[in-house]
């Protein structure tokens, strides 16, 4: 035991040899460990992540590489990729100002519009979690109930929501019975109507997940600081905003990063709501575009569409990670 302390003492600040401090050390120990320790940590670190790395190398790397290559071929997905005709940057030209560019960038716009639900889910989820975290009757039931829409099968959800919003569907019937004079509410006919309904569907489905995450996060929020604030006379709202919310930053960050990745790759919900891609393709997202061209046996174009999207997602995520890193270093 003595030995270990000695070794640590060589390169580390004096703090670690003292008795345990009450407040956590402000500066993380990112100064160097001794060689032996560092080597040990290297080994252990890689050991712990090895299953994941192996999994990715074996099951994802090759398909990824193939899909990158596919961008430069005229591949129909069925025959061998390597026997297909090489077309260079043909698909790139098509998406950036060529034949498919209108459809692709329209799909990109739609995707962004359908991502509006993300901040809504986060905000709503936060407040719902705070509410459900209280010591009240029935909170456990509420948690299940709010999460239920997220786990219903796609088939069931599509049946229900299509019936609700379609021409002459349930909402229209309500409209007629209340004396509406037009032939329909035309909820899904306008671009705005589609945007609204799709986001509504996504919030309905997604808010439970955010709530759950926040509840988990709330469990780990330290009560010490809250106690201290209450003693200082702060009211509940201030505590909520100034202490709880910042303490939930890891959860928020996680939800935002993964949520954005998910939102940008969404394709199912508009399809099941509209029963197709919508008039003038106003329900087509980027991934719908990818599936569409995959179905038309044009994997080169589909791959380019997917990788361009991945590139954007990568940039956005990298920025987020960078911001996060800086924030953590500042603490």
């Amino acid at each position: 035991m003595e030995k270990i302390i000695e070794q640590e003492a060589v390169g580390t600040p004096p703090m670690s040899t003292e008795a345990q401090p009450i407040a956590p050390a402000k500066k993380p120990q990112n100064n160097t460990l001794s060689h032996a320790l560092q080597r040990q940590e290297n080994v252990i670190g890689w050991l712990y992540i090895s299953p994941m790395v192996i999994g990715i190398l074996v099951f994802t790397a090759i398909p990824l590489i193939m899909s990158i290559m596919a961008m430069f071929y005229n591949w129909n997905g069925l025959d061998s990729l390597f026997e297909s005709e090489a077309v260079g940057f043909k698909w790139f030209e098509s998406i950036f100002g060529g034949l498919d560019s209108e459809r692709y960038w329209h799909a990109m716009t739609n995707t962004l519009i359908f991502a509006i639900q993300l901040p809504i889910c986060l905000v709503l989820g936060f407040f719902l979690a705070v509410a459900m975290n209280r010591d009240m009757h029935g909170v456990q039931a509420f948690r299940v109930i709010y999460y239920l829409p997220g786990v219903m099968s796609i088939v069931a959800v599509s049946i229900v929501w299509q019936n609700l919003f379609t021409y002459g569907g349930t909402l229209d019937q309500l409209y007629y019975s209340m004396g509406g004079t037009g032939d329909s509410l035309h909820l899904l006919d306008s671009d705005f109507g589609v945007a609204f309904t799709v986001n509504l569907l996504l919030v309905w489905k997604g808010v439970g997940y955010s709530t759950l995450m926040f509840i988990a996060g709330l469990q780990s929020v330290s009560t010490d600081q809250i106690e201290a604030a209450k003693i200082d006379g702060a009211n509940s709202w201030t505590i909520l905003m100034k202490i709880t919310l910042p303490a939930l930053y890891p959860t928020i960050f996680y939800l935002f990063v993964t949520g954005l990745m998910g939102a940008l790759q969404m394709f199912n919900e508009p399809f099941i709501l509209l029963g197709g891609y919508g008039t003038g393709d106003n329900g087509m997202t980027v991934v719908s575009f990818v599936y569409f061209y995959k179905g038309e046996k044009n994997l080169g174009l589909a791959s380019v569409g997917a990788w361009v999207l991945a590139f954007f997602i990568f940039i956005i995520t990298a920025i987020q990670m960078y911001v996060d890193k800086r924030k953590r270093e500042a603490e």
Binding site: F59, L64, M66, V286, V287
Partner: peptide
């Protein structure tokens, strides 16, 4: 490594679907 792992989440399933099937 972490960034690469995160990166694999960014590719829509549609394009790796067929290569994965082949694999």
């Amino acid at each position: 490594v972490f960034l690469i792992m995160l990166g694999t989440m960014m590719i829509p399933f549609a394009v790796i679907m067929l290569p994965q099937a082949w694999l």
